[in-house]
Design a binder for these strands. Sequence first.
DNA 1: GCCGCGCTACTCGGATAAGCCATGTCCGAGTTGAGTTGG
DNA 2: CCAACTCAACTCGGACATGGCTTATCCGAGTAGCGCGGC
Lengths: 156, 156
Amino acid sequence: MKLSQGVEWGLHCVVLLAQDPDGAPVSRRTLAQQFALPETYLAKHLQALVRSGVLQATSGPKGGFRLARPPEEITALDVLEAIEGSASPFVCQEIRQRGTGGVPPEECRLPCTVSSVMAAAHEAWRASLRGVTVAEIRERLPKNVRERDVRATAPG
Amino acid sequence: MKLSQGVEWGLHCVVLLAQDPDGAPVSRRTLAQQFALPETYLAKHLQALVRSGVLQATSGPKGGFRLARPPEEITALDVLEAIEGSASPFVCQEIRQRGTGGVPPEECRLPCTVSSVMAAAHEAWRASLRGVTVAEIRERLPKNVRERDVRATAPG
DNA sequence: GCCGCGCTACTCGGATAAGCCATGTCCGAGTTGAGTTGG
DNA sequence: CCAACTCAACTCGGACATGGCTTATCCGAGTAGCGCGGC
């Protein structure tokens, strides 16, 4: 199991944008240079965040990205599932129905026990991420990082 | 993020073996036929379970796999990390140190906030899986599945 | 009848090829701002 | 001096190559049971 590194990029970018919610949009070039990331590939993930309604994009000069909602209403889970997708990492293949002595479909209305255990773990994971907002992350940042982010959101 | 389907296979096989902890070993062929899985590929995952000390393998005729510990002492997390590896799905690339205004390394002793949030979620996930033993899964199985498993562990 | 030996068949284990998704990149469409020119 | 037009540069957005990991497979090493032959 491996998480796309775009998740890290997206979280850092969203937190950075949260430093200045009502300010001017920040271009993807600025964001990429801020973390020394490949600009065009970062753009791919930013697009995903726009599609999910986390970010809002503006075209043209002085354009860029800004938060679509107040940072208090954006959870880490929102960012993660925007980039990584909301599908469960565990997909039950219903192997209980296959092979020797397979269980007939009419007895498989309820999800299999193994699947339930995995689903519970996934939900615990989601709940943990849902309980943290971007605003909270912003407030937990050390002073130096915060100053750096503010500097990045400043135009020029 | 996608979880290897070997996890599902491994869990089902371990639960099946838990139906008869002190019985004769079950060969990988029997296990594969039981769920209609590719035998040699299933073997790869079973090997991983042996390496992690979850299963115990026996060679020769009448050989096969059996649990290395009582099912009460095997958690879903043990099985999962044996197959999937125990590495965290989120690997912090320390991008805060890179790019314009990168934070110097001496100020990065503590893990970055984003990384901490992800680590907490991962720990919640692990805790959920650690709280479920194979014995508990076995007891939650419907009657028909349980009978099917017992039949599979019976020699012949 | 009993013991020892060899064989066979079955088991696991590691090394070896394809397929798919994450990664990385490029170019095109759209939009806004500034500069210029005419009134 | 003001307004409208043109241009140009900058932005995002979607379509196109590449690499690594999951998937899938094969063959070899080892072992235990079974049959056979000798005593």
